[in-house]
């Protein structure tokens, strides 16, 4: 059985005087023990909201969450908030994009790490401090005992992110959720952090849910990948088949949009046209249709279903990309 099963998760934001916004619109995926699963998409696709929803970090009267999130046999969405709080930090942990604002600026790093050890592992005093130093050492922070006394602003972005990871893995969580953990960092530091995450997954068997916009990061790290668009998973596959044979026109478009370091220079990029503002509602058809090169009238007959191919590749498209030649330009000029 999977460690985490997310089934038809929906998150709706309501606002007085405005139509409801469905940020997550029926997202389903699973994460197995020791597996790295990626949620990939551009801003506004619902990837971060998904992660916050399953950590139960979205609250307030104007948020409605539906569907189910089962972690290790427990339905998270039905837990009492105290029970959830016990799970967070011990079994489930999360790291965020901006390490500076995720740390308390007026408290030394050491105190912030030992706090977690005291809360979840009942370690106190000297024992907690020693363990904290061990943790910092483990995430590659040099001179950990001195670093424990430092404040977040005295550390570099990379060190802060390492400290956050140390706090997240302090209780050896079974699932680590990383929301754009390297986006704010330089590439050489990003490489260090990604290496660290890989090591943690390998050595501790922690499952990792990686949320990112960067297909390059996903390609090197994730076992399974879910591509999100406008609040739905539009394509899901294991890493190799996804990159070898992307099926949803959006995934294809994304891959064609990225300048690749190893591509011959002068090869033109093939961007996706328009922007997310052009989307139509899923109820009317495929939200991506207005930007899609494969758009046909069938795309507007209600929300497309998730189709499963023999290879285990799943895609939400009535008109998938099968050959990997560049797709024909849309019919506005050439009239197909």
């Amino acid at each position: 059985m999977s460690l985490l099963t997310v089934d038809e998760l929906t998150v709706t934001f309501t606002q007085r005087g405005k139509p409801d916004v469905r940020a997550v619109d029926g997202v389903s995926f699973t994460v197995d023990q020791g597996e790295v699963v990626g949620l990939v998409g551009e801003s506004g696709c619902g990837k971060s909201v998904t992660s916050l929803a399953l950590m139960r970090l979205l609250s307030g009267r104007n948020v409605k969450i539906g569907g189910s999130v089962v972690f290790d046999g427990i339905e998270l969405l039905k837990l009492r908030s105290e029970e959830m709080r016990d799970l967070r930090g011990s079994q489930l942990a999360m790291i965020f994009q901006d390490p500076l604002s995720s740390l308390n600026p007026v408290v030394p790093i050491g105190v912030q790490v030992t706090e977690i050890l005291t809360r979840h592992r009942k370690l106190r005093g000297e024992a907690a401090r020693k363990e904290a130093a061990v943790l910092l050492e483990k995430v590659g922070i040099p001179d950990p005992t001195r670093r424990l006394r430092e404040y977040p602003h005295q550390m570099s972005g990379g060190m802060r992110q390492r400290a956050l990871i140390a706090m997240a893995v302090a209780c050896a969580p079974r699932l680590l959720i990383a929301d754009e953990p390297t986006t704010a960092l330089d590439v050489t530091i990003q490489a260090q952090i990604l290496e660290l995450l890989k090591e943690l997954v390998d050595s501790q068997g922690t499952a990792l849910l990686m949320i990112t916009h960067d297909l390059g990061v996903v390609a090197g790290l994730c076992d399974d990948i879910n591509v999100l668009y406008a609040g739905k998973v539009v394509e899901a596959a294991a890493r190799r088949p996804l990159f070898a044979a992307p099926t949803h026109p959006y995934s294809v478009g994304l891959l064609n949009s990225i300048p690749r370091l190893d591509a011959p220079r002068g090869e033109p990029l093939k961007p996706i046209r328009g922007s997310v503002n052009d989307n139509i509602a899923w109820a009317d058809g495929c939200a991506f249709a207005p930007r899609c090169d494969h758009y046909t009238i069938e795309c507007l007959q209600g929300p497309p279903a998730l189709t499963e191919a023999l290879t285990g590749h799943r895609y939400r498209c009535v008109n998938p990309v099968t050959t990997h030649e560049p797709p024909a330009v849309i019919a506005t000029e050439d009239g197909r």
Partner: peptide
């Protein structure tokens, strides 16, 4: 059979709401 104009009309209809 759907024609090109059908497609564009339908799409325009759906996006017109946000003109």
């Amino acid at each position: 059979m759907t024609t090109k104009t059908d497609k564009i009309d339908r799409l325009a209809e759906l996006t017109a709401a946000r003109a």
